[in-house]
Nucleic acid binder design. Structure first.
Lengths: 136, 136
DNA sequence: AGAAACGATGAGAACGATTGTCAAATCGCC
DNA sequence: GGCGATTTGACAATCGTTCTCATCGTTTCT
């Protein structure tokens, strides 16, 4: 389980990692796959999925679910943090809130829960998107 | 948008609502569908989905996504709250944290975001589950 | 009551995201 | 230079969810 066969840095894996590095918001596996294709570095869809999963398992990318359940990934700092995401353009800001961390742990403790984790995402409309209406 | 055609209290809708009322943790549409079938109140799968969606839209049930993106529903109080969910047995506790609400709003404001919402779920292992290992 | 009008239902098809399959390509290493 | 293990990719398969559409149940109008 904790055992990891050493990963080989194949062309495909590097390409996926670079694609993630080149954008700063959340992207779905399919979007990454398209992006790579357009970039002239085609990578099979299955491979993109596999690679993103590994990266997420390794904690090198953050994974979250859109409202309709689609998985989206983003390269992030490795410390614990949350996201403030714009509904319009997807722009993402990493935020930290020690108080929240403490609160969740204590609430969970009060109810006898152990081994606590949590998810917290904030959604809103960023300044530029509230200025100009949906360019969707 | 805010306009709602009055819902008819059909046998199916009542059945779904009752099924939700009879359990106190999150269930997927398919689970509700199965439950109703076993109970001798068969309701078409599509209808279950439709009904759950409406209930969720109306704020009468909470909707959240499991780790693998499946939508699960639960009958809840109508005030804003979050959930503390046991990974083992699914037992759910509703929790409130005014401080968190304030924090998310202010963080979002600092970054120029408006029309702010957020999701926050806490996962852990409840007392009985940490006593007896996975009865799964 | 009878008929028209309309929302609601359900069986199954359609869909879209994700995962599985498996033969062929590639890499690290002897 | 070749070998075995890993990785890849085209495609099929899965799974949750939504759509389609003919039919049904109510309500309303006459």
């Amino acid at each position: 389980m904790t055992e990891q066969t050493p990963l080989r840095p194949t062309r495909q894996r590097v390409a996926v990692a670079e694609a993630l590095a080149s954008v700063d918001d959340f992207r779905s596996a399919q979007e990454i796959h398209d992006l790579l294709g357009r970039r002239g570095e085609p990578v099979g869809l299955a491979t993109v999925y596999r690679t993103l999963q590994r990266l997420a398992d390794a904690g090198e990318v953050d994974l979250l679910r859109t409202e309709d359940g689609e998985a989206v990934y983003r390269r992030c700092s490795t410390t614990h943090h949350h996201h403030l995401v714009c509904r319009g353009c997807g722009a993402t800001v990493e935020v930290e809130g020690p108080a929240v961390e403490r609160w969740t742990r204590s609430i969970a403790g009060e109810h006898g829960f152990t081994d606590v984790s949590h998810t917290l995402e904030i959604f809103g409309t960023c300044r530029s998107c509230s200025a100009s209406p949906a360019t969707d």
